[in-house]
């Protein structure tokens, strides 16, 4: 149900039959608009989004119910891996409006978005990797974005319709934690263009798995195909004695058990390597810096598997 923030207590929702006619609508500022029936029409931006997205071959969401499990880091690595092929054009759209990490992780935090006659141009990490994030639009990285849902949705629709993405082979969408406005909006806006699938990220503890179960439930409710599950931060190898220990213990069987229970493919497990976090802070690609580390090998296997599942290899 779509209820504006300034709606009265018992607002029937702008798309309901009762919109503008219910008792609660008396005195509401939006009553006339609702009663006119305009609000029941599809979002006027949809045709523009569909047109813009018609030149994007694959649209992939990176999701996880919980925060801090490595969505943005994974998105960045996946994009770098796709972009390693000169023939492919890749884009990243960061819809985490309140906490955009993508610009830092890709090492382009100080860049700005430019607009041209064909729309906002993404910031390019390299010739074939374009990025759009709200992080490029803030006067200072310290500024907080205190926006409620409708404003966030507005920006997401602009990211889809006004950004000059050009011809893309892959568009990766990095999302904030949870299952709320951003997620619903992206699904709604891309419904017509089609989403190729979602990659779910988790860590081994039950607290994270609980949130991922909710995310799976969300994907099934809205009808998004789940490409697979990635377990991040599984096991830590001490740099001094080389013994592996579990920082986040899989007390309930971890990602493996979750994958079995839900019939979702476990794409792989990435060990916790302190150099991954450091690479993200410095904005460099971990796989390129440490190609022989176990974590890089795990990353590359997962990425290959994703290409196979999508039918691109």
């Amino acid at each position: 149900m779509d209820v504006p923030t300034n709606a009265p207590e018992h607002c029937p929702g702008t798309e309901s039959e009762q919109a503008g006619k219910a008792d609660a609508c008396a005195g509401c500022d939006n009553q006339q608009v609702c009663a006119s029936g305009q609000t029941k029409l599809p979002d006027p931006n949809l045709p523009f989004i569909t047109q813009r997205m018609s030149t994007v071959k694959r649209k992939i969401l990176v999701l996880s119910g919980k925060g801090g499990v490595g969505k943005s880091t994974f998105t960045a690595q996946l994009a770098w891996a796709f972009a390693a092929d000169d023939q492919l054009q890749t884009g990243i759209m960061d819809v985490d409006i309140c906490g955009p990490s993508i610009p830092t992780i890709l090492g382009i935090a100080s860049e700005q978005v430019h607009s041209s006659s064909s729309g906002w141009s993404p910031v390019y990490v390299q010739d074939n990797l374009g990025v759009m994030s709200v992080g490029f639009m803030l006067p200072s990285s310290h500024d907080a974005i205190m926006w409620r849902g409708p404003k966030k949705n507005g920006l997401i629709s602009q990211f889809l319709k006004d950004v000059d993405w050009g011809d893309l082979d892959y568009l990766l969408v990095d999302t904030p934690p949870g299952t709320s406005d951003e997620h619903l909006s992206i699904v709604q806006y891309l419904k017509e263009s089609g989403i190729d699938g979602a990659i779910l990220i988790t860590t081994p503890q039950e607290v994270a798995l609980q949130d991922v179960r909710r995310e799976i439930d969300f994907c099934r409710k809205v009808g998004i195909r789940i490409i697979g599950l990635v377990e991040n931060m599984s096991g830590f190898v001490c740099p001094s004695c080389k013994t592996e220990s579990q920082i986040f213990k899989p007390s309930t069987g971890g990602g493996k058990k979750l994958a079995q229970d839900t019939g979702i493919e476990l794409l792989g497990s990435i060990p916790l390597d302190p150099r991954i976090g450091k690479s993200a802070d410095y904005g460099v690609s971990f796989i390129d810096e440490y190609p022989d580390s176990p974590a890089s090998i795990a990353y590359l296997d997962i990425i290959d598997r994703i290409k196979v599942i999508l039918g691109d290899q």
């Binding site: 779509d2 504006p4 409708p150 299952t179 709320s180 619903l184 909710r214 799976i216």
Partner: peptide
């Protein structure tokens, strides 16, 4: 059910 997702936009959360 623990696995149920709560898919709410702002006004419902409010």
């Amino acid at each position: 059910n623990k696995g149920d997702s709560v898919v709410w936009r702002g006004p419902k959360k409010n």
